[in-house]
Simulated scan of single mutants.
Amino acid sequence: MALKVGDKLPNFKAKDTNGNIFDSQNYIGKQPLIIYFYPKDETRVCTEQACSFRDNYQEFIDLGAEVIGISADSVQSHLKFKSKFNLPFILLSDNDKKLRKLFGVENDFLIIPGRQTFVADEKGIIVLVFNSMQGKIHINKALKILKELTK
């Protein structure tokens, strides 16, 4: 069942770009989170999306939020992607697709892993679920709702 606005973010663990175990309990309920699922490292739209998050990362930090990108790519692929494009935020490997299932992120066009963004407030409650194959628009939606939360 897909997560929706008003749901609490589930706790989860996954490997980050350093091969370390990322534990969401260290973040959920402590600060706003932007968790975005994307299809694949190094593809055109996914790279544009990641670079847009990178280019706006300081604004997310200034609003007290952390950005987490998730795809099924390997830790090694994420490390290369992060290094090549100087991505300052967390990338997690979901190679077994457990996180995608936990969040209820469906495939687009039946075969392409979905591109979906979840924004949670500092209590871990989801305030935005956004699904679009257009990468850059996710950043604008996430920033807009974060600014509304911090008014």
Rank of each mutant, 00 (worst) to 15 (best):
S24E: 08
K82E: 12
I126M: 01
I70G: 01
S24W: 09
Y36N: 08
N107F: 12
K136W: 08
N11T: 15
D55R: 12
P88T: 03
S52M: 05
L110P: 01
Q49K: 11
D62H: 00
N26G: 04
N140L: 08
R115V: 10
I126T: 02
N26V: 03
L110F: 12
F53D: 02
F81R: 01
I137V: 15
L128D: 09
A50R: 01
K151V: 14
L79F: 14
F81A: 01
G6P: 01
L128P: 10
L149E: 04
V45D: 07
T17E: 08
Y38R: 03
G69R: 06
I34V: 14
Q25E: 06
C51Y: 06
E122S: 15
F130W: 15
D55N: 15
N131Y: 06
I28V: 12
D121S: 04
D96M: 13
F81M: 02
G69M: 08
L87A: 03
I21E: 13
N140P: 00
K13N: 11
V129P: 04
E59H: 10
N95L: 13
G104A: 07
K141Y: 07
V105N: 03
G104D: 06
F60P: 00
I90A: 06
F37P: 02
K141I: 04
N18R: 13
Q31F: 06
M1I: 14
V75F: 06
G19M: 09
I145Y: 13
D96C: 14
S93T: 08
V127H: 07
I70W: 05
K144P: 00
K98R: 15
G6L: 00
N86D: 15
F85I: 01
V45S: 04
D108W: 06
Y36C: 07
K151S: 11
A2R: 15
F12Y: 13
K82T: 14
E66R: 12
Q58S: 12
V129A: 13
E106W: 07
V129I: 10
Q25Y: 10
V105A: 05
L128C: 09
L3H: 09
N20F: 09
Q134F: 11
L63E: 02
N20C: 08
E59Y: 05
D73T: 01
V67F: 07
L110W: 11
G19H: 13
L128F: 12
K151I: 14
K13W: 05
N11S: 15
G69A: 10
V67A: 04
K8F: 11
T47C: 00
L92C: 13
I112W: 08
E122N: 15
D62E: 07
S71L: 03
L91D: 02
A50T: 01
V129H: 07
I126D: 00
K40M: 04
L146I: 06
F89E: 05
G6I: 00
L63N: 03
V75K: 11
I126W: 00
I137P: 02
G104Y: 03
D121R: 01
K151P: 05
N11V: 14
Q76S: 12
N86S: 14
I139V: 15
L110C: 09
L87C: 06
Q134W: 11
N20M: 09
S77T: 11
V105R: 01
I126Q: 00
L91G: 05
D41A: 11
I90D: 03
L63C: 03
C51R: 05
N18G: 13
S83R: 11
